[in-house]
Each structure stands twice: as C-alpha cells, then as structure tokens.
C-alpha cells in the first residue's frame, strides 16, 4: 500500500501554518533576532558577525522548544478529541501515516520558523557587521533545526500517546519545566544528599552523563562547537553547583580524556534520542488505542 505520510504532512503544514499562535511565536523569534542584532550593532564596537551569531543562542534555546512544543502537543490528541481523526482515518491514511505525517508537517512548520530567524540573522549580520560567516551560520542553523525537531518529536510523541488534551499539555509542560527550571534541583540535589557536598567541577561520571542528557545543554554544547563566542544554557539556578562548573561542558569537566558519550558531539545522539523515544512510545500507544 502506498504511504500517505507526505499527503498528511502537507495538509498538516497548511493547517498548522494558519495557526495565529504559532505565527506570533515565529514573529517573536524573528523580532528578537532583529532587535538583538540592531542593539548589539548600536552598543558594541569591534565585534564580528560570527561573534554576534552566538547571541542567537539565547532566544533560540528558550523560544524554539516552546514553539515546537506548542506546534506539536495537540497534533494527534487534538484530532482525537475533536473527532477529525475519524474523518482522516476514514480516508486511506492509516495510523502510521497520521503520526509520521504530523511529525513531518509540524517539523516543517518549526523548520520554516528557524529558517526565517536565521535568514534575518544572515542579512542583518551582512548589513550591520559587514561579513557573512557562512559555515558557522550554516552549522548553527543545522544544530538549531535538530534542536527544534527534537521538541516537535517530543510533543508529537506525547500527543499520540495520551487520550486527552489535558494530559498532553501536563506532560509537555512538566517535561519542559524539568529541563529548564528543575534540572539542577533534580540532579545536583541528589548529588548533594549522596556526597554531602555541592557539585564540584570534576563531578562523578553519572552526574556528567545526566548533564549530557539534558537536550538544552546538548544544544548549547553543540552550538558552542560551531560558533565563536559562548552560548550558556538558560537555566533556573539554585546554587548547588559552582558558576564555573555551570559554564563548562561535561567533556571539559571530565578529568582526562572524556569517554565518547561525554564528548560534545554526542549531543547529537542526545537530541535524536529525545525525539525518537517519545515518538516510538506515542506511535506504539496510538496504534493500539481505541479511538
């Protein structure tokens, strides 16, 4: 049987592309980039376009997950609750087409948002700072696209796995809060209880592995390897680990040569895992659900 993933994805892209909320988020993202570029150009002297590029890391790491989660958390469960999934499954597309078509379509929407933001940064970088750091720009855009895809996958996976909108929203918001606001409490907190000390720079390996598995850290670590300047993860901090430790990647904190899973590039695997596992769970549950 022919696959209808592409057809469903195109419909999704059109449908989600008409959501006003999503467009305001895209507008916010593009606007922040533009305003930020102009502000840096206005205040700072002697700064290259490549260094300004790292400025993008701040709005991107906050808004991209939010936009992607909003784009995705209702994808499947929203249709299930409204009943339009019955109309859709009454046509030739099957449940596989629905899940992956939605994933693809909504990823494309977020991809467009990222593309627009980067296009603005490219143009403004050239106009205001006089150069185009093309390779760095491209690398950063690619990493950001992967980061956005991760959160779309997470949200679409959750939306396929649950039966009500409320559950989907609760899980998605809860996960985001864990990643951005509660992470240090949940990782450095137990560390403190176990070892009776705040987390040192050279922390135990399990702790570094945990740090490595936060997709936001994975993104900033990856971004730092492709752009000049430094992008710090935006996190709620509770003072359970030193500022110095906070600004270092797991690879830098590991005494000696870091094993492969603590290297910066391993962040790619981390981002892929955060997308694939929720989609796999969601797909499995949606396949077996009574609609």
């Amino acid at each position: 049987m022919t696959s209808h993933i592409a057809t469903v994805a195109r419909k999704e892209f059109e449908d989600a592309g008409r959501s006003k909320l999503l467009w305001s988020l895209i507008g916010l993202l593009v606007g922040l980039v533009a305003v930020g570029y102009v502000a840096i150009w206005y205040t700072a002297d002697d700064i290259t376009a490549a260094e300004v590029l790292s400025f993008l890391g701040v709005p991107l790491q906050v808004i991209l997950p939010v936009a992607a989660l909003i784009a995705g958390y209702m994808a499947v469960v929203g249709e299930r609750r409204s009943g339009s999934v019955k109309l859709l499954l009454g046509l030739p597309p099957n449940r596989t087409d629905v899940v992956f078509g939605k994933l693809l379509g909504r990823t494309a929407v977020v991809g467009v948002a990222i593309g627009l933001a980067f296009l603005v940064s490219l143009v403004l970088g050239a106009v205001l700072f006089g150069s185009v750091p093309f390779l760095e720009w491209l690398g950063f855009a690619a990493v950001s696209l992967l980061f956005g895809t991760t959160f779309v996958g997470l949200a679409v996976g959750v939306s396929a796995a649950v039966s009500t909108r409320g559950k989907s929203m609760a899980i998605v918001v809860g996960l985001y809060m864990v990643l951005i606001a509660l992470w240090e409490l949940l990782t450095a907190g137990p560390y403190y209880l176990i070892y009776d000390e705040s987390v040192p720079v050279e922390a135990e390996t399990w702790y570094l592995v945990l740090e490595q598995f936060n997709p936001i850290f994975a993104y900033t670590n990856l971004a730092n390897t492709v752009v000049e300047g430094s992008i710090f993860p935006f996190q709620f901090q509770y003072g359970l680990q030193s500022m110095e430790a906070y600004q270092m990647t797991p690879a830098e904190r590991y005494p000696g040569d870091a094993p492969f899973y603590l290297q910066d590039w391993f962040g790619i695997v981390v981002l892929v895992v955060w997308a694939v596992v929720p989609v796999a769970i969601g797909y499995y549950r949606f396949q077996r659900a009574d609609l």
């Binding site: 419909k11 059109e14 449908d15 009943g83 109309l87 499954l89 009454g90 046509l91 030739p92």
Partner: peptide, 28 residues
C-alpha cells in the same frame, strides 16, 4: 489498508479542520 481506499466513510461525532476550506478538504 486494503479496505480504506474502496470505502467512503461518514463517521459520527467527527469534526472538520477549521482552518482549511471545504474545497481543500475534498482535494485532500
């Protein structure tokens, strides 16, 4: 998957895609 291309379904308790036009539904 062999059934759905040969069957026309009018479900109960369905909803349309509010942002897409009627014609777009039929095209889809």
């Amino acid at each position: 998957d062999d059934i759905s291309p040969r069957v026309g379904v009018l479900p109960e308790g369905f909803d349309v895609y509010p942002r897409l036009s009627g014609r777009r539904h039929l095209e889809f």
